[in-house]
Amino acid sequence: MAYSDKVLDHYYNPRNVGSFDRADPLVGTGVVGAPECGDVMKLQIRINEKTGLIEDAKFKTFGCGSAIASSSLATEWLKGKTLDEAMDIRNTAIVEELCLPPVKVHCSVLAEDAIKAAIKDYQTKNLGSAAVAEPLMVGV
């Protein structure tokens, strides 16, 4: 199977690989997938206390090239977004941007799930605190 240039680019030059301190209250961490399934994605966001925007995002992924590219792309898209906007990122947009073939759609689903899990983690941590002015419903 041939990979799209965009997948290759994210694979060879992944954006925002790394980790934030999970314990940091301004950080939301989402870990989805399982090693037995061949894919584990960890996606983290850091929220700016003043603006409430996602100021930074990082990922680490165990999975195929499409899974790596999906999560790398997700971190790019997350930066500068509000949590509401981030909740609206759909896997189909990732599929489209990376030209993923049908067998790789689940890799993009994983990225969407990871985003949602990270947001949820952040919100759970900050329940009742000022950082979450309007708590979001997390439906997955």
């Binding site: 997938g33 399982a34 680490k60 994983l110 899990a117």
Partner: peptide, 17 residues
């Protein structure tokens, strides 16, 4: 990363999908 932190991967409760 987890392995380097000394986490035994088999003991992690993975959110299977």
């Amino acid at each position: 990363e987890m392995h380097k932190q000394g986490i035994d991967l088999s003991t992690v409760a993975w959110a299977a999908h």
